[in-house]
């Protein structure tokens, strides 16, 4: 791979200090998530049953509203779906990430319909969770904008043209979509699964290094010889696009 590679830890999320509420009844899963999130600099609170979780989510902590909910699908007393429906009915706009042992497509659709913003199936890798948490915390990034800009890179969403330092970058339609996705999440770790889901609408982990090949092609167009690289590989996790340093 000709992409510069960094380790996950090298990229502290810019959203650290965000306040997350984890509602999860499994002690060990909860501990792992809490430790990982704390390591990344997040403030994280935990509720181990649905009723307490719902109350906390409503009230916040010391009158401080939570920035994000990580919500297990199956919970004692009040289950995850009911919590999210309840919160949405009360106009609590907090972004919600569902965790579920159920990989059923129906379950996913149900979770998202009830008001969830993302859905992650257990077992998952912690870096996948943190990448998605960061993506949710950064939203919304001005969804109605017509131009995206990251450092020297510019994307015109209307004329569908890209240029770097004024030099046009020729892109195929799907490459354009891929770059748009990366530019909407600048300096943020994006996993392969996120790219497959959001750019290709493809829910399947290929055995081939499919995503890396697409990213490689894009990078050769974006990072011309002599340019400072903008697209990096994050080992075992995914990719990041950021301003050249």
């Amino acid at each position: 791979m000709d992409i510069d590679t960094f380790d996950d830890q090298g990229w502290p999320p810019v959203t650290s200090k965000a306040h997350i509420l984890l509602i999860e009844d499994d002690r060990e899963t909860a501990d792992e998530i809490i430790r990982d999130m704390a390591d990344r600099g997040y403030m994280i609170s935990h509720a181990d049953n649905g009723r307490v979780g719902l109350e906390r989510a409503r009230e916040g902590k010391y009158d401080l509203k939570y920035d994000l909910l990580i919500l297990d699908r199956m919970l004692p007393e009040v289950d995850g779906l009911s919590i999210i429906s309840q919160l949405r009915a009360e106009d609590v706009p907090v972004p919600v990430l569902f965790l579920s042992a159920l990989n059923d497509v129906d379950e996913r659709v149900r979770g998202l319909k009830a008001g969830g913003d993302d859905y992650l199936t257990k077992p998952f890798v912690l870096s996948e969770l943190s990448a998605r948490v960061e993506a949710l915390l950064r939203r919304p990034a001005e969804p109605r904008t017509t131009r995206l800009r990251v450092g020297p890179l510019e994307l015109d969403l209307i004329s569908r043209e890209a240029n770097r330092d004024g030099r046009p970058v020729e892109l195929l339609p799907r490459e354009f979509k891929l770059l748009e996705y990366l530019m909407r999440h600048p300096a943020q770790v994006i996993t392969r699964a996120m790219l497959l889901e959001d750019v290709w609408n493809y829910r399947f982990s290929p055995q081939t290094n499919l995503v890396d090949v697409h990213i490689g092609k894009l990078r050769r167009k974006v990072d011309a010889p002599g340019d400072f690289p903008m697209i990096y590989n994050i080992r075992n996790v995914g990719f990041v696009l950021r301003e050249p340093q």
């Binding site: 497509v105 493809y202 829910r203 399947f204 290929p206 055995q207 081939t208 499919l210």
Partner: peptide, 19 residues
């Protein structure tokens, strides 16, 4: 058909063939 599932099936076959 279910679009996602059909895509997964065909993708799997192509993935395999390329592998």
């Amino acid at each position: 058909a279910d679009r996602d599932l059909l895509m997964e099936a065909v993708g799997n076959l192509v993935d395999n063939a390329l592998k």
